[in-house]
Write a protein that binds this DNA or RNA. Structure first.
Length: 871
RNA sequence: GCGGGCGUGAUGGAAUUGGUAGACAUAGCGGACUUAAAAUCCGUAGCCUUCUGGCGUGGGGGUUCGAGUCCCCCCGCCCGCACCA
């Protein structure tokens, strides 16, 4: 009996699939389409086990849908622009292009080694000029339509990477990759006006268009867009040396206007900056705030502080002159960078007012039932300042509020906005946290902006016939210097051009695009890749939207939001009818691994460690090793495993299989050698089981229903397994599908495919092979061949469960007495209730517990349970 | 602080709509095969027990014939957002 040998079987079948162009997407037939896509990888150099899990999931879906008769599109490509290539060129010499394409070659080979059902004919890298030329065209079309514009603005400058970052790439005031403190710098750069689409991007999260997305991803996007409705209004200012006669503020609580006791501006607000010039106290405060950390912990601790400005603002309703403070808790980036403060009903305002002895004017009497929210308050209607230190922010009735008196807070909100609008002092507005998407990056290795900057004509699009604007060749030595080589002499010939409009000397925009632009439409290009335009609409719309998108949660906001935005813009340019690119989204969990440290505290790779009886030892020295917590795999902690080494040891099938067994796919999974060994054992057991039925597909016919009980049971098991696995795959319950395969395999143990059993086993082994195929495709082909199946297993239609075999003819019902399980009975599934009751009560184990008791009630849930209530 | 999710054996996790808790796997234990080991196979497996049963899904209470599942309170963990006016 030959053992299954993945080392020879896996390359063999990969070659067959290739030769037969098995997985090339067909778009000619009238079969339904299915587009499944995993987020394409950055070509970092080699695939990691997380990639394997990600792509294995997509592969299961792709193979499953294909077998179900869909035309499947399952492509692969490379998110190939970006800083690491430049860093590699800087550190190791060479050119970013060589590094990138070299990595792609390696990783392509590794992915192929995993036997993925991918249509490689559509592969591209975003750094291919054949790809980015269309991105440049899209950019210019967007420019024409006004979706993108060039603006002078304060940008987030990463001094380490020497480039601009989007707000989203600044975390706690630091660059998301470099970790360097971000500086503000004024620059002229390009922006996609994504805020114009904020409303629709938000609406789609709730109107059913994204029903197939996880709730938490939608919630994250909702938070990110951060829509709030309120009022923008201007307070007339009085005072000496006024730089402006009005102060524009933003509030979501205009209902509390009568409770206003002061106005506040951000430390970097123009008004504060103006007075800083003449007042050292203001200047000192501003620099103090600038020095203040922006990390969460520091914000938490930071005391509310401020400095008065020599101005007052007139209250719209009372005419009262309110003092104006520069406050450390006001953000210039949000709203207008200025507020009116109502200490009684806002905690921050109250903290500030208590510190500086400013008036606290309650204007809301809490709604009965909400008084409990009001701590430290004697009188719940709080007619006057009662010295409290906690603001009441709940609902209520307006008091001390002139024309608003007696209204609910909700009514007052609308009434106050209407009044301010009527007075011409301001208007109700919607505010977003979302900023426009700045896409200029001061880097070399990205898609060049197809723009020429002319002193006379401004920004001039590169004419269509001159596209693409390709990256110029740069001497690799140039990457050793910091900054963008495109700005230096080495790119002079490329940079200096004549203006297409006026012909005078001009220069190219030396910025390249944010790599999130590259990944905002690659899925469309996979669907259709004509030479002369980004996509062919008809072809793109045949495939789009992506029915199943799979990737990491780390892209929940940026990539997914940008792709949604981009798709809308492409729609407006007539490239597709789709506005939401991804119908169903699945975010898979990470792969984790235990960490190991030697006695000196140094991290060890798993392969350097030997586990004996739960204790770990260094493989070379035998010294004891501490087993640390199970954590996300990271290079720094060395708790990584090499998928290629694992595939060599256990076969690609086993690696894929293990990554999908045990844990639900959305959760983290721990890589263990034992788990991989388990998968390997499974593969061998399947092979051995199938081997017993060698060639049987060619001999035996279809099984009948006139069979002995044990064989009928096998038939039922077969069809139940088909039914179960099918549903499990459809719902991404890969771990359960695999558990069912184990059970099924166990049930087939020791049954020989002879005589009467032959057709039954044919059916069972065929199902076992086909149901295993999406998870262990190479093994399945090997088994298919062994069984004598026609053609490739990958081409065989997915098995269908026979409904009539899903139900048992005798079922076991548990019987409870007073809710405790006391016995069980065997009955026909359609046995009448009174009969079931009779059998249950007569059952020995049940009767024992009924002695001396009166049966008061018997509950029979058909097919489920019998419960006898007795007392 | 706000929002979302979760808590089940030694471990990862199953459990349809409120109906046999712990499927399946991993580790463990016992056995077979072997000179031996590995591999493989078979068996065993929530806890306690006077062997009759009792107790068990983070803790407490409730609804119900019946609760891991529903409701209330509490504890713990994870994720997202956050001086956002």
């Amino acid at each position: 009996m030959a053992r299954y040998n993945p080392a020879s079987a896996e390359p063999k079948w990969q070659q067959r699939w290739d030769e037969e162009k098995c997985f090339e997407a067909r778009s000619d037939g009238d079969r339904p389409k299915y587009y499944v896509l995993e987020m394409f990888p950055y070509p970092s150099g080699k695939i990691h086990i997380g990639h394997v899990r990600n792509y294995a999931m997509g592969d299961v879906i792709a193979r499953f849908k294909r077998a179900q008769g869909f035309d499947v599109l399952h492509p692969m490509g490379w998110d190939a622009f970006g800083l690491p290539a430049e860093n590699a060129a800087r550190d190791n010499g060479g050119h970013p292009r060589e590094w990138t394409y070299g990595n792609i070659d390696v990783m392509r080979g590794q992915l192929k080694r995993m036997g993925l059902a991918i249509d490689w004919s559509r592969e591209f890298a975003t750094c291919d000029p054949e790809y980015y030329v269309h991105q440049q065209k899209l950019f210019l079309e967007f420019l024409k339509k006004g979706f993108v514009e060039r603006r002078e603005s304060l940008v987030n400058w990463d001094p380490v990477e020497m480039t601009v970052l989007a707000n989203e790439q600044v975390v706690d005031g630091k660059g998301w990759r470099s970790g360097a403190p971000i500086e503000k710098k004024s620059m002229s750069t390009w922006f996609f006006k994504i805020t114009e689409r904020a409303d629709d991007l938000l609406a789609a999260l709730d109107d059913g268009r994204l029903e197939g997305w996880p709730a938490h991803v939608k919630e994250m996007q909702r938070n990110w867009i951060g829509k709030s409705e309120g009022l923008k209004m201007a307070f007339p200012l009085s005072g000496n040396d006024l730089p402006t006669d009005k102060l524009e503020i933003y509030t979501t609580r205009p209902d509390t206007l009568y409770g206003a006791s002061f106005l506040g501006v951000a430390p970097d607000h123009p008004l504060a900056k103006h007075y800083a010039e003449s007042d050292p106290a203001v200047a000192a405060f501003i620099s103090e705030c600038a020095a203040q950390g922006t990390s969460e912990a520091e914000i938490e601790k930071a005391e509310k502080k401020g400095v008065p400005l020599p101005v007052t603002g007139r209250h719209p309703f009372t005419g009262e002159e309110l003092p104006v403070y520069a406050c450390n808790f006001i953000l210039m980036q949000y709203g207008t960078g200025a507020i009116f403060a109502c200490p009684a009903h806002d905690q921050r305002d109250l903290d500030f007012a208590r510190k500086y002895g400013l008036p606290v004017k309650p204007v809301i009497a809490p709604t009965p039932g909400h008084e409990n929210d009001l701590k430290a308050t004697a009188d719940p209607s709080c007619p006057t300042d009662d010295g409290r230190t906690e603001a009441y922010t709940g609902p209520g009735t307006m008091i001390h509020s002139g024309f608003l008196d007696g209204m609910t807070t909700e009514e007052a909100l609308a009434a106050a906005i209407a009044k301010i609008e009527e007075m011409g002092w301001g208007e109700g507005t919607t505010n977003y946290r979302l900023r426009d998407w700045g896409l200029s990056r001061q880097r070399y290795w990205g898609c060049p902006m197809p723009i020429i900057l002319c002193d006379d004509c401004g920004t001039v699009p590169v004419p269509d016939d001159q596209l693409p604007v390709s990256l110029p060749e740069i001497d690799p030595e140039e990457f050793k210097a910091p900054g963008n080589p495109l700005d230096r002499d080495c790119a002079k010939a490329w940079r200096e051009v004549s203006c297409p409009k006026c012909g005078k000397d001009a220069r190219r925009d030396t910025d390249t695009m944010d790599t999130f632009v590259d990944s905002s439409w690659y899925f469309a290009r996979f669907a259709s890749q004509p030479d002369d335009k980004p996509v062919d609409k008809e072809e793109a719309d045949r495939w789009l939207p992506v029915q199943q998108y799979i990737g990491g949660i780390e892209h929940a906001i940026l990539h997914l939001l940008y792709a949604r935005y981009f798709t809308r813009m492409m729609k407006e340019c007539g490239y597709t009818d789709v506005d939401e690119p991804f119908t169903n989204l699945f975010t898979q969990g990470m792969v984790t691994h235990a960490t190991y440290r030697d006695e000196a505290g140094n991290w060890l790779f798993p392969e350097e460690v030997e586990i004996r009886g739960g204790e770990a030892f260094a493989r070379d020295s035998g010294a004891p090793v501490t087993i640390g917590p199970i954590e996300k795999m990271s290079k720094s902690k060395k708790n990584v495993v090499n998928p290629m080494a694992m595939a060599d040891a256990y076969g690609a099938d086993a690696v894929r299989f293990f990554m999908l067994s045990d844990s639900p796919p959305e959760r983290d999974v721990e890589w263990t050698e034992a788990g991989a060994e388990g998968a390997w054992r499974f593969a061998n057991r399947v092979y051995e089981t199938v081997e017993r039925g060698e060639g049987v597909l060619k001999r035996a016919g279809a099984p009948g229903t006139d069979l002995p009980d044990d064989l009928m049971e096998i038939r039922r098991r077969t069809h139940k397994t088909i039914d179960g696995v099918t549903g499990d795959i459809e719902h991404f319950r890969f771990n359960k599908a695999i558990a069912r395969l184990y059970e099924f395999l166990g049930a087939l143990k020791g049954i020989s495919p002879e005589g009467e059993a032959a057709p039954v086993m044919v059916e069972a082994l065929r199902a076992l092979t086909q149901l295993t195929a999406p998870f262990m495709p190479h093994l399945a082909e090997e088994c298919w061949e062994l069984l004598g199946g026609e053609g490739l297993c990958a081409d065989a239609p997915w098995p269908k469960a026979d409904e009539s075999l899903l139900a048992d003819d005798v079922i076991t019902l548990p019987v409870q007495v007073n809710g405790k399980r006391r016995g069980e009975i065997k009955v026909a599934p359609d046995a009448p209730q009174d009969e079931v009751q009779k059998i249950a009560l007569a059952q020995d184990d049940v009767a024992r517990f009924l002695e001396g008791k009166t049966v008061r009630k018997v509950i029979v849930v058909p097919g489920r349970i019998v419960n006898v209530v007795a007392g």
